[in-house]
Nucleic acid binder design. Structure first.
Length: 920
RNA sequence: GGACCCUUAGCUCAGUUGGUUAGAGCGUUUCCUUGACAUGGAAAAGGUCACUGGUUCGAGUCCAGUAGGGUCCACCA
């Protein structure tokens, strides 16, 4: 076995082990027979994506769950993959084309798609390689891509099925149109942002009364050519006489448009009169429908104004057009006023440009299983962590609108609908759509393709990823499902994702799971609770926080505040990064990223490394190859208080980690492990071991205990920091002579471990454990006595102790340890030593034997301060105990505690006071 | 406009069902390169728990309100 190096150098170790794990096929799911399954599907990153800090958090959490499940002996499966990300990917390739001065239409659909596939072969899925650098233990042999043939078939199957049962229809409606991507978007893909602009006040001349005007306010004068009416509130006395008359449109092709009355108008807002432009505003569209008004679309799909906008505006880009429109209105005298104005404007989330409400033909989905999806979460069949997201989820489902699932893109799943050649798809009625002679809907297309033309649109990417939890398990093909272990792994166990995609993805997956899993003949049938439980896609959903920078701002490319994960990995190691990010990720809150915390993760790894190094340097002490071998080396008859205490802490920490992980409180689990390892083990047990190891009697058992503790610590830590724990596992021989991987070991839970110890006769003694606490305080006070006099480096200082027999027995048994821990030459029992620096400890009054040179003034100050604090505390406790109500109403245990505490405080006070008097 | 979250040490956060003197990490100060680790060790300083009321023998913790910060949802031109 090579000697462990002085400091931990993660990079080579990590590369080495990841390769070894892959070679050993360590992440492939083992045979499920007789094991409880545990499965996770990765939230598929965009195939265009690169690893960012959010992925680091998200995937580390999943890896922790999966690796822990493996250590618990479960059949653990983590399915990886990527999402074809329609708009984003198409945009990337279009950008490449633009450099070649080409547009996708120059290539045509087929060539363009070839080009996209080419791109994805060469550059797509980089992120999966990056996840390997992070240590993600996905079963890579099961990597899925939403555009793979098998997955695509699942997507089309779902479409055909929903269409057949009337959930999907085609309709001309107002949609959110992205002029940059030239496609419709769903409501969820639109984000509202405040935008600075102007409010224009424009006057419309009454057609039958020249010289008289009706004024309206608008932020979008370029749409005036699309105006078809002016609306006022039916009960607005100011305009009552005008309703039914006409005004002249002040811009665009000349026209007279009616004044209508509609209750949707807010009398208080603006002038009280509203221009109605049905083609460019959702609310106006509704008004237009009510009054049977036409819709005049003045925009091209790319957001430039078309010929209907009139010669002055046609051809202009929409914001240019707005400026120009204002100028034209001003020139004609129709512009009354123009003032700066800020309002909320919908932006395309992807392209980051304002969307246009636009009237187009699209495919829509009436969501299936809405009620069951609500019930699944409301009734706790699916548990959200933190729980409060339940409300957000339910609220969205309560107000759910049909989903626009068609996209005017080429990259995506082309909608499996064929129109009979010669038919105009935009004139088909619902009845036509259901007529197989006119419209063909199937997976494989019509038998006589020459007579049909396939729908041009593709599906929204989310309309494929909503099938992820079961499409990745072979659905709908029976044989594939069998092979993929659908019966074992569905429903999956836990979903780890961000709350930002609760609507996009989580809610839709739940509905899809409820709708599509289970026997085909039960589609759409009411579900029993048992059926519901079998169909939900996951049992638990853990929502991570959003990572922000130290100032609380969102991570963004433009701010440049987003740390580069691969750089962090090379700087701190993947383990350091993992440990650090988990330790700062509080449950349910956003995370303030601080690189110092990642450094802390690296430091912890180094601490772990060196503790193991110390163990190795202490020499071999017997068989380390498995837990039984280590247990058999333990000699309970030789246990001292510290042995009891460290074993007690090991059990307590094991229990605590179990508890935290069960509640998805990862940072608390990491904190518990940190405190245990650093404070209990390194700062105390390893230090006292240095005395114990000097003695032949206690040496072997002490090393066995170290092995037991280190082994358990490595197992507890492995899910969080897999690389270093694997390396140390092997270095210390816990993998046996064959070097079996740490993943092949089984972690014992706290009660199993306690049972194993009892089996060896090791019964932990509370009193001994408690005595170590006293000893720690005692040592600490001894160190403080030295430090206050700048004697910390002096090891020739003697201590004297006035103590009862019981206390002295504890201290005397630990003489060698005390000398090492406090840096003392010795500790003797003595009577009171007047005038010497002293501290009142739980084990007696401790004096620093300073042979004369005492700064009496400083001592007096220190003791007086101590006395003041004691007095204050005593007063508080006395006041409580003399309160009649407290004594009669508080539980006896609390009262007893207070009495006991008071007695202790008084004793301590008396002793402190005596010391002070003795100073003279 | 509606819903939710946050406010505890200089910073980032813990604080279980209300119960001794409110904790940790980082940062700060002082001391220490002793044979695991200076990516370290030791000691210390630092908090009217945002504010105001209420419930209670007892409130950081429960309730109501106020202020500040944040997130999501919502068609006011």
């Amino acid at each position: 076995m090579p000697e462990i190096t002085k400091s931990y150098e993660p990079n080579d170790v990590e590369r080495k082990w990841y390769a070894a794990w892959l070679k050993a096929d360590a992440f492939a799911c083992r045979d499920a027979a007789g094991r409880k399954p545990y499965s996770i599907v990765i939230p598929p990153p965009n195939v265009t994506g690169v690893l960012h800090i959010g992925h680091v958090l998200n995937n580390t959490l999943q890896d922790i769950l999966i690796r822990r499940a493996r250590l618990e002996g479960r059949s653990a499966l983590w399915i990886p993959g990527t999402d074809h990300a329609g708009i984003a990917t198409q945009a990337v390739v279009e950008r490449e084309l633009r450099k070649e001065k080409k547009h996708r239409t120059d290539l045509g659909r087929e060539k363009f798609l070839e080009r996209v596939w080419q791109w994805r072969e060469q550059k797509g899925g980089v992120i999966l390689e990056q996840l390997k650098a992070l240590g993600a233990s996905c079963d890579w042999s099961r990597t899925h891509f939403t555009m793979d043939p098998g997955y695509s078939r699942s997507v089309l199957t779902a479409f055909v099925d929903l269409f057949g049962r009337g959930h999907i229809y085609r309709g001309k409606r107002m949609v959110n149109w992205c002029p940059a991507s030239r496609t419709a978007l769903s409501d969820e893909e639109v984000i509202m942002k405040p935008a600075k602009g102007f409010m224009y006040q424009v006057r419309y001349e009454l057609a039958d009364e020249p010289g008289r005007y009706l004024e309206v306010k608008t932020t979008r004068p370029e749409t005036i050519p699309g105006d078809v009416a002016i609306a006022v509130h039916p009960e607005d006395a100011r305009f009552a006489a005008l309703v039914g008359r006409k005004v002249r449109r002040p811009l665009g092709p000349p026209a007279e448009i009616p004044i209508v009355a509609d209750a949707a108008v807010d009398r208080e807002f603006g002038t009280g009169a509203l221009k109605i432009t049905p083609a460019h505003d959702k609310a106006d569209f509704e008004v237009g429908r009510r009054h049977d008004l036409p819709a005049i679309d003045v925009l091209h799909p790319d957001g430039t104004l078309n010929e209907l906008a009139g010669p002055g505006l046609a051809g202009l880009e929409r914001f240019e057009g707005r400026k120009r429109a204002a100028e034209l209105l001003k020139d004609s005298g129709a512009l009354v006023k123009q003032e700066p104005y800020e309002n909320n404007v919908g932006y395309s989330e992807r392209a980051n440009v304002p969307i246009e409400p636009r009237l187009t033909w699209q495919w829509w989905l009436r969501y299936p299983r809405v009620e069951e999806a609500k019930a699944a979460v409301r009734d706790g069949h699916i548990r959200f962590h933190p729980e409060r997201w339940t409300k957000v989820y339910l609220h969205w489902l309560e107000n759910i609108q049909d989903w626009c699932i068609s996209r005017q893109l080429w990259w995506g799943h082309r909608i499996p609908v064929w129109y009979r050649r010669g038919l105009d798809r935009d004139t088909l009625s619902e009845a036509d759509l259901a007529d197989p002679a006119k419209v063909h809907v199937s997976l494989d297309g019509p038998a006589d393709p020459e007579n049909w033309i396939q729908e041009e649109d593709v599906l929204d990417t989310w309309a494929s990823s909503w099938l992820w939890p079961f499409a990745t398990l072979g659905w709908p093909d029976r044989a594939e499902m069998e092979e993929a272990g659908y019966g074992t792994f569905y429903p999956t166990s836990t979903l780890v994702t961000g709350p930002d995609i609760i609507f996009f993805w989580v809610a839709r997956m739940i509905m899809a799971g409820l709708e599509f899993t289970g026997p085909e003949e039960e589609r759409g049938c009411p579900l029993t609770e048992a059926q519901l439980l079998a169909r939900i896609p996951f049992r638990d959903v853990y929502f991570t926080g959003i990572i922000r920078d130290a100032q609380g701002r969102k991570m963004s490319k433009s701010l440049g505040n987003s740390p580069e994960p691969l750089e962090l990995i090379s700087k701190y190691g993947a383990d350091g990064l993992r440990f650090g990010i988990i330790s700062i990720a509080p449950q349910g809150l956003d995370i303030h990223f601080q690189e110092e915390r990642i450094e802390g993760g690296k430091n912890f790894c180094n601490k772990l490394w060196n503790a193991c190094r110390f163990r190795q340097m202490s020499g071999p002490a017997g068989d380390n190859s498995d837990l039984d071998a280590i247990l058999s080396r333990i000699e309970p008859a030789r246990f001292d208080a510290d042995d009891h205490a460290i074993l007690d802490r090991t059990l307590a920490t094991t229990r605590e980690v179990e508890r935290c992980l069960a509640g998805f409180d990862f940072s608390a689990a990491v904190q518990a492990m940190y405190a245990f390892f650093w404070n209990d083990f390194c700062d105390w047990y390893v230090e006292v071991s240095k005395a114990k190891l000097q003695e032949a009697d206690s040496r072997d058992s002490c090393l066995a205990i170290q092995d037991l503790v280190l082994r358990q610590a490595l197992l507890l830590l492995h899910p969080v920091i897999p690389f270093i724990t694997e390396e140390l596992w092997q270095q210390l021989g816990y993998g046996g002579p064959a070097g079996s991987l740490i993943e092949e070991a089984r972690i014992l839970n706290a009660s199993q471990l306690a049972e194993a110890l009892r089996g060896r006769g090791a019964v932990l003694d509370r009193a001994q454990v408690a005595s170590v606490e006293s000893m720690k305080t005692f040592v600490s006070q001894a160190r403080a006595l030295k430090a206050e006099r700048n004697l910390a480096s002096r090891r020739d200082v003697k201590f004297l102790l006035t103590a009862g027999d019981a206390e002295w027995a504890i201290v005397d048994a630990a003489q060698a340890k005390f000398q090492r821990m406090a840096g003392a030459a010795g500790l003797e029992r003595s009577g009171a030593v007047d005038g010497a620096p002293a501290a009142v400890t739980p084990l007696g009054t401790l004096y620093l034997d300073l042979a004369g040179s005492v700064d009496t003034g400083a001592e007096r100050t220190r003791l007086t301060k101590e006395l003041t604090a004691l007095d204050k505390h005593i007063a508080g406790t006395e006041a409580r105990l003399s309160n009649e109500a407290f004594v009669s109403k508080a539980p006896p245990a609390v009262i007893d505690g207070a009495r006991k505490q008071l007695a202790e405080l008084q004793a301590k006070r008396a002793e402190t006071d005596r010391l002070l008097q003795a100073l003279g």
